[in-house]
Nucleic acid binder design. Structure first.
Lengths: 252, 252
DNA sequence: CGAATCCTTGAACACCTTCAACAGGGGTGG
DNA sequence: CCACCCCTGTTGAAGGTGTTCAAGGATTCG
């Protein structure tokens, strides 16, 4: 596959789509912002040509200049270990934000790559920071988003630390289903934009194990799956796989 | 052990120790702040009586009102799954911040508990937010800290997702060693404030496995360990355990 | 059509868990 | 001060879950 470089910083085409006209703005950065503030934000956002499948948004080691919000498509972020093992750290759907973890170090320490044709909004961080002065709600909003990401990553920590393969895959599918649903898509029937290998490295499993688990869930009648097309038949039982029965559910 | 409640919100004793006189202020929230801004921050910080071992800083479900910085001791944060399995999500050493992940949801969705006698600085979030207006550097600093936490959690994701038991324990010990060193303590010889069980649930391993791995590392001469006293003998080999040799280390 | 990629399935094996028993501090009370 | 107990940590053996290696099938794209 062609390993293209990250986007050059002076791109040619930009797409003008106002934040307030974007179907995602209830899921994206501008949540809860007034129309006036929105216009200010909008002015600094760049919208480029869509990324091709496999194209990098940024790579490990790239200096941090911008963060991105996904408009359509899917972005995968991952780190590569010294011995070649890959850990996928997240899949980013439309409305979600990519690249904020690089703020502290000033460099991206994970790579972000399009899993399919994907368009993003690019937010230059220096401009964004300047905007705080006039839009005091912005840093507040931003911290909420980062806090949310922290909480999300913690959920993933629990998945990886304590759960079995079946629990992880079930929870992954339910999370995907819920997120797609919030974007107006079907919660029961959807297309996986990522490979079995990607799912595996995200969930800390071998690709073969993921494949076997899909087969198992299908044989049990919980879902049907054909390559990347998934149809959840029995949400109740899928939830049972994801969150096994509690003998005692008090938090004491 | 006595399960005490979280700290009441109107505590009696407060300890006045200025941030600028605190030995931790190079590691803590005030990093890079001017003396004037520091005083403003200081005014809103509460310093309470130290927590006893086992005492909760906050519990799952508690409303988010404050976040905390550790002054001395160690804090463990963890979540409890429905079936009783625990996942430790972090150990917090002096200078580190606890509780920020609750910002988005408004509730703590993990518990924080003292592993030994521990004192903390309590920062009421509403006051803290007000302070932004007069100290514009504060949200910037805060985001850096949150971004850093995101990056840290990602490291932990990689540990849990891709690494073997020995790699995880080695990486854990090296991380602990480095953090203690930055606080002026020995990097080669230190006391573990957490039990084998805690280490295990943090690393996604059974307590017995942790014990066996310690024994193995000791038999190999990498370290000596007696209960909670650890002495690292061979950093080079410990690093080799944590980061196995790369066949090809180019990031391509 | 052929090549490459992705997915599936099987079998052997490794790593870690679970269950069980025991050792050794540290604290408490006699 | 010692006996006792509880808690933590260690060690052993058996078993399970997931990995690795290997091969074959399916889909896509040039």
């Amino acid at each position: 596959m062609p390993l293209q470089n990250g986007l050059p910083h002076s791109d040619l085409v930009t797409f003008k789509v106002a934040c307030k006209d974007c179907s995602l703005y209830q899921l994206c950065l501008p949540v809860g912002m007034g129309e006036k503030d929105l216009e200010l934000l909008e002015r600094i956002v760049n919208r480029r040509r869509p990324l091709e499948r496999g194209e990098y948004l940024f790579r490990i080691g790239d200096p941090f200049r911008c963060f991105y919000t996904v408009r359509s498509g899917t972005v995968k972020s991952s780190v590569l270990m010294a011995d070649g093992r890959e850990q996928v750290t997240g899949f980013h759907l439309p409305g979600e934000i990519v690249g904020l973890d690089a703020l502290a170090s000033g460099r991206h320490d994970c790579a972000a790559r399009a899993l399919e044709v994907t368009s993003v909004c690019e937010v230059p961080y220096d401009h964004f920071e300047k905007l705080w002065e006039t839009v005091p709600n912005l840093p507040r909003q931003m911290m909420r988003i980062m806090s949310n990401e922290l909480a999300q990553e913690r959920v993933q920590l629990v998945q990886l630390g304590q759960k079995t393969g079946a629990e992880r895959l079930a929870a992954f599918l339910l999370s995907l289903s819920a997120r797609l649903h919030r974007r107006g898509l079907s919660e029961s029937e959807f297309h996986l934009s990522m490979s079995r290998t990607d799912i595996g490295t995200y969930l800390g499993l071998a690709e073969e194990t993921v494949s076997r688990l899909f087969t198992m869930l299908q044989e049990l009648g919980v879902l049907t799956v054909s390559r990347r097309h998934v149809c959840i038949q029995d949400f109740e039982r899928l939830r049972l796989f994801a969150h096994p029965i509690s003998g005692h559910s008090e938090f004491f």
